[in-house]
Design a protein around this nucleic acid. Structure first.
Lengths: 228, 228
DNA sequence: ACCTGAACACCGTTCAAGT
DNA sequence: ACCTGAACACCGTTCAAGT
């Protein structure tokens, strides 16, 4: 949506929920969460701030709609014709990459379990977990646990990444690790020991390792079930 | 804000970071997240709003300090002399119950991985996971995954619980489930199928089942390591 | 029906001035 | 050193008035 030279060009079409949501995503992605206000959004859409309320209830609904727009795109892309484990990893990585590309959806996804974007993920994962052979009475807990772990790990990653643009990742992590190393040895022996591994770790690998732990646990549920 | 008898009693001692944090927790717990402003907090402390800034950097630091205060209390209570698995479950349930009692810490814990409260949990869990016999090169990923799952699942629960006081839990869940059941069968077959189990489920059991999945996965890591 | 933009009721934060 | 509270620069949201 980068128009380059001028921004608030004359409106060619009427306002719509979709155009508002896309403009909001543009602001969130390029200028960050704090930059999205009804005033900046109205300016970009070349309208009054009150006009937005004709199409969207309030700011929370706007953010939920923006999140849903992105997650819907991700879920539409994941292929179906692979083994359940791989399909689940694909969905999980899709969510991870989406949060990485749009950090602001991290807080949204882990902040409201009833929003539509979460339902999409639940649906996408659900059938695959079922295909794994999880017994019926364990399915509810297994699927929700898996989804919450995906959202939880990905959200923490997104929050960790949310730092001043000029700070480089390695320098930032090194600074944090130095802080860990200086903690009281009597109170924080384990965290101190972990400090050295912090700067060098790979986020994506860390994420997938976490998902695989949950998948291993879910496979354990299937062992006692008969059949495939 | 109901002053009851009277709230803003004469200050007997000087302001301190601890007194400010405790007053903030009081407001957050009794009146909710939206009710905490520097004005209401200053009123309760019988001081000017600017005085708070002498002791605490800004609102984010205030919320982080309040979260740390609560988590520090929880971590101090967990016993040490049990088997690693049980000890981990105890810590996890402690976090779950703390988020249940103080829903506002849910968003805080899953929104900033570098805050001190998260370090406390990491430290508390870390030694126990190590005691489980996880190989050195898998420890970092295993511990962070477990912690993020604990925070992720508990945060989703806290967010789900954050609803108008007059709505009763069962009625609310039933309404959500009805919405699920009315989704398009072609697009949401799985979620529709899950709808029936939503109103009757037990949150605490759901949480523990999720943690146990991760623990099973972690035990799988230990199998290939020699020794205990 | 849909849009405009001033107005309302707030915020977090700062800072000159007090003690 | 520590506190006061008015002032500043914002918010989200509403609503009479326009087209």
């Amino acid at each position: 949506m980068s128009i380059g030279t001028q921004r608030a060009e004359r409106r060619t079409h009427a306002l719509s929920k979709e155009r508002i949501v896309e403009a909001a995503i543009g602001i969130l992605d390029t200028e960050g969460e704090a930059a999205l206000t009804f005033r900046t959004l109205a300016a970009r859409l070349a309208t009054g701030s009150g006009a937005i309320y004709w199409h969207i209830a309030d700011k929370q609904a706007l953010l939920a709609a923006a999140t849903d727009h992105i997650i819907a795109g991700v879920m539409a892309e994941v292929a179906e014709r692979t083994a359940p484990q791989d399909a689940i990893r694909t969905v999980a990585l899709g969510v991870f990459d989406a949060i990485d590309a749009h950090p602001w959806i991290g807080a949204m996804l882990s902040g409201d379990p009833w929003q539509h974007a979460v339902l999409r993920i639940l649906e996408s994962i659900g059938g695959k977990v079922q295909a794994l052979g999880v017994p019926r009475d364990a399915l509810f807990n297994a699927v929700t646990a898996l989804m919450n772990c995906i959202l939880g790990i990905a959200a923490q990653h997104a929050a960790a990444e949310r730092l001043p643009r000029d700070t480089e990742r390695l320098a930032h992590l090194t600074a944090i690790a130095t802080g860990w190393a200086q903690l009281d040895p009597a109170e924080y022996p384990f965290v101190r020991q972990l400090a050295g591994q912090l700067p060098g770790h790979d986020d994506r690998e860390q994420f997938l390792a976490g998902i695989d732990l949950v998948l291993t646990g879910i496979e354990g549920l299937c062992a006692r079930a008969p059949g495939a």
